[in-house]
Design a protein around this nucleic acid. Structure first.
Lengths: 99, 99
DNA sequence: CAAATAAATGAATATATGTTCAATTGTATG
DNA sequence: CATACAATTGAACATATATTCATTTATTTG
């Protein structure tokens, strides 16, 4: 694999590698959520959510859309959805325990 | 999604989120590689590779097998392979540029 | 058993980064 | 236009962590 590709992929993984940030993204998996909703669901301040959303948006992992006073965030595309759903599946399956 | 699941998934993403570490794992994608090979391929010291491999192994992302003086590492299972290959595909596809 | 090679370990360090808090910007509405 | 609500921004801080270097452990072979 190419060096640049590795760095690019690592950046994506890195963003998804923080529990708070991952919670934020998965919160937006089903349907668009506004910052307040996300903050309440994940259980952190709106400020923190906003900080994280900025990074996620810059990396094209989420999309933003303003509706009146609120800004709604959704996962950017089906790629992101699949990556997350695959990983959720992966973890859901039983682990192989060695003796 | 459940809190514990989120943390567990974030841990996996986090491990794959470092360029050096991701390089190490992808290096082991095709076939088992020993530490020296990995170090040479990725372009870092064997010590550093070893440090990272310990984390990757603890998280069941890679498997170790000693053959004489060398220790060969491979991706732990098809899940890991698929996650990596999916992500590589994802990045390979052209980005959608907004106006 | 001694020497050589491969890998792992531990301590130390420099850096990155998640979080908080206060202040600011944007939007609707009385 | 002023108030209220939602979201963003910036600075400051505490913590986590990637890397280096020196040392040690494991394994083969002369």
């Amino acid at each position: 694999m190419v060096e640049d590709q590795t760095v690019e992929i690592a950046e994506i993984f890195h963003l998804l590698g923080d529990p708070t940030r991952l919670g934020i993204v998965t919160c937006c998996l089903d349907k668009p959520r506004n910052v307040g909703e996300i903050a309440a669901t994940v259980g952190v301040s709106a400020s923190l959510v906003s900080h994280h959303l900025r990074l996620l948006k810059a990396a094209r992992l989420v999309r933003a859309e303003r509706r009146g006073k609120q800004v709604y965030y959704a996962t950017a595309d089906e790629h992101v959805d699949r990556i997350l759903k695959d990983m959720i599946e992966h973890v859901a399956e039983p682990h192989r325990e060695d003796a």
